[in-house]
């Protein structure tokens, strides 16, 4: 009986560490997205400050290609929209993983308790 619980415990621990790994990955991803959003925000502000006839270039590989200012503004706005969506998605993912971790932790505690009781009996 004790061995069975021990095995279960081991398995649960493995699952938990897997979830934790995924959680850390998701958090890192969110941070990256956040910084991308911030950079895009700064660029958008800068593009808004430019005069209508200002020249804007985009770095494509090693060359600067001239771009239409309006196009550039729209492009950045679109990018920000996309990144915001990604952030929301990642947030949901993180919340889900948090819930999963909690329930796993509870399960683990229960198993540990059971094991402890068995040991006392034995």
């Amino acid at each position: 009986m004790a061995e069975e619980i021990q095995k279960k415990l081991q398995k649960e621990l493995e699952v938990l560490s897997g979830v934790q790994k995924e959680y850390h990955k998701a958090v890192a991803q969110k941070q990256q997205l956040d910084s991308q959003l911030n950079e895009n925000k700064a660029v958008k502000e800068e593009l808004m400050l430019l005069k209508k006839d200002a020249e804007v270039f985009k770095l494509i590989g090693p060359v600067l290609v001239k771009q239409d200012l309006e196009d550039a503004r729209q492009n950045v706005a679109k990018r920000m929209e996309y990144i915001s969506k990604e952030i929301k998605r990642t947030d949901n993912h993180i919340a889900g993983l948090e819930n999963k971790q909690e329930s796993l932790q509870e399960n683990l505690n229960k198993l540990r308790n059971d094991l402890g009781k068995l040991k006392i009996k034995a």
Partner: peptide, 12 residues
């Protein structure tokens, strides 16, 4: 020409 980030450069 200034690098304003995310690959965009603006002439000022």
């Amino acid at each position: 020409i200034i690098d304003i980030g995310t690959g965009y450069y603006a002439q000022k």
